[in-house]
Design a protein around this nucleic acid. Structure first.
Length: 708
DNA sequence: GTAAGTGTTC
């Protein structure tokens, strides 16, 4: 056999990428490595087998390169996600093309567009689009069209994406899927699903596994369990029931909709699973608060030999954070270090969050400082964590440092920052932040507006809350409810009611359970008893809403205050679910006011059964006995408190003086000026005695310090 | 020879 033929045959056998290095040295030895024919073939083989650097080296040495060869190398860079290299070589191709070598063709353009999409460089992508229109060398085929749709979608230009899509009267399944994915990723899952249905009904569109994944993904975003399940059924009819990615997307639908049984059922029946399947099922358990089960699954996954990656580690860390499981959290942190993914931005953020939720801010700071890339999410995790751990100053320092690092907050960040201020009760910070929000254009965001409104209410500035409310151009039910709650907190029940009527009469917004909770609590705080009861009846009979335990407890409280204890107990008995401790607590309070010892005992018995370790209920019961001189019963309850070693959680008072917040608990001597404060208190006491002030005995009876 | 898809952090 002639030498050339032997070589060629050997080359064919190397097409799959094996033995490329041996082939290369063989070509060098036989002296044909620079022969155009062999070198071209070897370059394409290298390009195909993901050895892009070797391909490029040969490519650069070749005196003449076909368009096919250019495309091979470009494609290789692109598959390796080396988008910048792809574009650099593409630019070279365009400029070379003017002189001698091949110009970009229909195979080149989609590769270049994909690189633009990967880098989100819209302008350059538009130039490529312009090149397609002008050059005449490139047809606008489905491949070019799909790549353009993908580029515009990834850059958030849905108008341009749709314009390209409409240029094709009969788009194929891939092009439709590109369009559907684009809609779904740009906040239009409903339109995505509509396009899917329309294409499946009318077009020559035969759904394939990938298109089904996008449809299920849209259902997941919309929490459309039923529609998604019907796709699941369709999938079986089409014979795609062994497709792992497709099953994973269905599993994720079940997980995200909280259908834990459906999810677990599918998961255990799947013929094959991968780390994605495990991540979804773990996330499902975390979401349901079953954190131990989630960690068990994570460990089971590792035992079965699946390699945990960033996503599954993040899921396990969330389980530790939600379950305040520091011990397991530390283990997973160690695992992340071992797997060299500790400094991946989402992993380290999840670790910071875990430490913060497990009350270990030092460890959280330690990692945060080591993070090489901190995005807005990482900063906000640290900030919220500080607030949750009672580190007021630190959280605001973090915010300032974040802005100094030129991190631009997103809407979620703003909401979290405002919530942190709100929790801390720092009004001055709120006002500064509000100014910042107006400048940065977040003022019109409804989530931000609702949080800001709530912040002002909680910090005691009703006027500012009203200003925010009036300034919102669009008001959803959350905004209305927050304003109603704001009036309620400030004891302006009548205003709360007026606002409720304004909402139901002048806007199309429908009240929900939260609206009524705000309204009922506003009535309760302002002593608007009849009105409160009327509103509860409206909630049930006019708006057909199902009250939950918190609504019932307010109604019981309202009825109790006007002495209608029988009606209150009727309400409790009519409740569709068993009354919780809030409800019985409200009744017990009413019994104390209206001297009903029998019903009081009944309520107290329920409470002690529901929450046997709550010191406050024992105290209330003992107070009732004390009021009726039932000293034996009283001392029994008191010794029970001692026996159980129960302590009532101390209430905290927060006061803001000159931009600084000061927190106090009962008998707190920790403050730096505490001697001055106590001196003032002593002086006040003396003046009160001089002016013959008699303290309220009932208040003393309510105190728990005496027993604890 | 080329285009579409599934799981993650506040």
């Amino acid at each position: 056999m002639p030498r050339r033929e032997v070589l060629l045959r050997f080359m064919e056998s190397c097409e799959d990428g094996r033995h490329l290095a041996s082939l290369h040295s063989l070509l060098l030895k036989t002296g044909v490595a620079h022969d155009r024919h062999y070198a071209t073939k070897l370059t394409t083989y290298y390009a195909k087998s993901a050895s892009v650097e070797s391909a490029r080296k040969l490519f650069d040495e070749l005196p003449q390169r076909s368009v096919y060869l250019w495309n091979s190398v470009l494609g290789s860079y692109c598959r390796d996600r080396q988008y910048e290299q792809t574009l650099r070589l593409f630019k070279q191709m365009v400029s070379n093309g003017k002189s001698a070598e091949g110009k970009p063709d229909n195979y080149t353009v989609p590769v270049a567009l994909k690189a633009c999409a990967g880098l989100r460089v819209l302008e350059y992508g538009e130039m490529v689009h312009g090149y397609v229109k002008k050059s005449g060398e490139v047809d606008m085929d489905m491949f070019v069209g799909s790549a353009l749709i993908d580029l515009y979608s990834k850059c958030g230009q849905m108008g341009s994406a749709l314009k390209v899509f409409r240029e094709f009267p009969s788009p194929d399944v891939v092009m439709c899927t590109s369009m559907i994915t684009g809609l779904e990723h740009n906040g239009s899952p409903v339109e995505a699903l509509q396009l899917f249905t329309q294409m499946a009904k009318t077009g020559g569109f035969v759904a394939d596994p990938v298109s089904l994944i996008t449809a299920i993904s849209a259902c997941t975003q919309l929490l459309y369990l039923k529609v998604g399940s019907s796709v699941h059924g369709f999938m079986y009819r089409m014979g795609f029931d062994a497709n792992l990615s497709l099953l994973n997307s269905v599993l994720n639908l079940y997980a995200k909709t909280g259908s834990i049984r459906l999810a677990m059922n599918l998961f255990r029946k799947m013929p094959r699973t991968d780390v994605i399947s495990w991540s979804s099922i773990i996330a499902c358990y975390v979401c349901k608060g079953a954190t131990n089960e989630a960690l068990d699954l994570f460990n089971e996954m590792i035992e079965k030999g699946y390699k945990p990656n960033e996503v599954s580690v993040v899921g396990a860390l969330q389980a530790c954070a939600a379950g305040c499981n520091l011990e397991e959290g530390k283990k997973i942190h160690a695992l992340a270090s071992e797997k060299k993914i500790e400094l991946n931005v989402s992993v380290s953020t999840a670790i910071v969050d875990m430490y913060m939720k497990c009350s270990s801010p030092d460890e959280a700071f330690d990692l945060f400082l080591r993070m090489p890339n901190k995005d807005v999410v990482a900063w906000v995790t640290l900030l919220s964590g500080c607030a949750e751990n009672g580190m007021a100053y630190e959280s605001m320092d973090v915010f300032r440092n974040m802005l100094a690092s030129e991190i631009i907050p997103d809407a979620v960040a703003i909401v979290k920052i405002l919530a942190a201020c709100s929790e801390l009760g720092i009004l001055q910070q709120a006002i500064c932040l509000h100014g910042y929000l107006i400048i940065s254009g977040f003022g019109d965001n409804m989530y931000v507006g609702a949080t800001l409104l709530e912040l002002y209410s909680k910090c005691g500035s009703l006027d500012n809350a009203i200003k925010v409310f009036n300034g919102m151009c669009e008001k959803d039910v959350v905004i209305w409810s927050s304003m109603i709650a704001g009036y309620g907190i400030h004891g302006q029940g009548k205003e709360a009611l007026r606002l409720f009527y304004q909402m139901t009469r002048n806007s199309s917004v429908q009240p929900n359970n939260v609206t009524f909770l705000s309204l009922l609590s506003a009535c309760s705080h302002s002593g608007l008893i009849e009105e409160g009861i009327e509103m509860f009846n409206k909630m049930v009979h006019k708006y057909h809403l199902k009250p939950d335990s918190e609504h019932y407890s307010i109604v019981v409280d309202l009825l109790g205050r006007i002495g209608q204890l029988d009606k209150a107990i009727d309400v409790i008995e009519m409740m569709p679910t068993l009354a919780g401790s809030h409800v019985w607590g409200a009744l017990l309070g009413a019994c104390r006011i209206h001297d009903d010892i029998e019903m009081g005992e009944l309520a107290a018995r329920h409470l002690l059964h529901l929450d046997p370790d709550h010191a406050g209920y024992y105290v209330l019961l003992s107070n009732i006995y004390a009021m009726y001189g039932k000293w034996d019963d009283m001392s029994k309850v008191r010794s029970l408190i001692k026996e159980k070693k129960l302590k009532k959680a101390f209430g905290q008072s927060v006061i803001e003086v000159k931009n600084k917040t000061h927190t106090f608990v009962v008998d707190d001597r920790a403050h730096q000026d505490s001697w001055k404060i106590f001196e003032l208190l002593r002086n006040l006491e003396m003046r009160m005695t001089e002016e013959a002030y008699v303290p309220n005995v009932e208040v003393q009876l309510n105190g728990t310090e005496e027993f604890c």
